[in-house]
Amino acid sequence: MTVRLTLISPGTSGALRDVRFDDDSPLDDEGIARAEAVASAVAASTRAYCSPSARCLRTAQALGLAPEAVAELAGCSMGRWRGRSLAAVAAAEEPAVAAWLSDPTAAPHGGESLRDLRVRVGGWLDTLQAGSGRVHVVAEPDVIRAATVHALASPDEAALRLDVRPLVAVHFSGRAGRWNLRVGETLRPESE
């Protein structure tokens, strides 16, 4: 049995625009409009899931999906850095940011390490292979990075080298305990 999984990043929010560690800010008006405009590019699926954040749920709804929010797909817990800009955190805690950016086991913010995120997301991803059919997941960019690293059995450090833009689809097909990746595409309205 083959699972065809499409991971979709959410539309824009205030945290994304301000380059802040996410604080569950809602999708902004432009993010909603863009997601609604590209809904026709999202094929029907047998199952739909999303990160439990407000912007992922709203993006999924704008894309015409009726997702189940899954705790294992939550974005990385950023502890005391939550809601703060990367620039402000780097200015106040330069060695901590350097450690976080170089060591996937580091969690100087008091939250979750990138390795812990990958293990959590990877565990959920592996459960999908028990079924078949088309699955859509609207997930935070760090969750998509973690899923990609896990699926390709790449080192955890690779997650820091992956850029996930708003409303990008990353496609996987999985069976027999392995995943294949079709590199992402930006969702576009059918008229473009």
Rank of each mutant, 00 (worst) to 15 (best):
C50N: 01
R120E: 06
A71P: 09
A15P: 10
G79L: 12
A99G: 06
P189V: 05
A147P: 04
A41F: 09
L152N: 06
A92Y: 00
D22H: 14
V97K: 06
A96K: 06
V137D: 00
P104C: 07
V38L: 03
E185N: 00
V19E: 08
L16T: 13
R115S: 08
S191P: 00
T105A: 11
S113T: 10
L57V: 11
A43W: 02
P26A: 11
G31D: 08
P189G: 11
L7N: 04
N180R: 15
S51K: 13
G177C: 04
L86C: 03
A69S: 08
E192F: 10
D18Q: 13
R82T: 15
D142Y: 00
D116M: 09
C50P: 09
T105W: 02
V3T: 10
G184N: 02
L7A: 07
R80D: 13
L7Q: 03
G123M: 07
G133W: 04
G11H: 04
P108C: 01
D18G: 09
L63T: 02
G131L: 13
R175F: 06
D28H: 13
G111E: 05
A54M: 10
S191G: 11
R17D: 06
G11Q: 10
P104A: 07
G14R: 14
G79C: 09
P155M: 06
V42L: 08
E185S: 05
L114N: 02
R182C: 03
A74Q: 09
D23N: 13
P10W: 01
L160T: 05
A87P: 02
G11E: 14
G133P: 05
A44C: 12
A176E: 13
R178K: 06
L125N: 02
R47N: 12
F172N: 10
A176G: 04
L5W: 06
R82C: 11
E68C: 11
D23A: 15
V183R: 00
L101N: 05
A69L: 08
A87T: 11
V143C: 04
Y49A: 09
G110C: 14
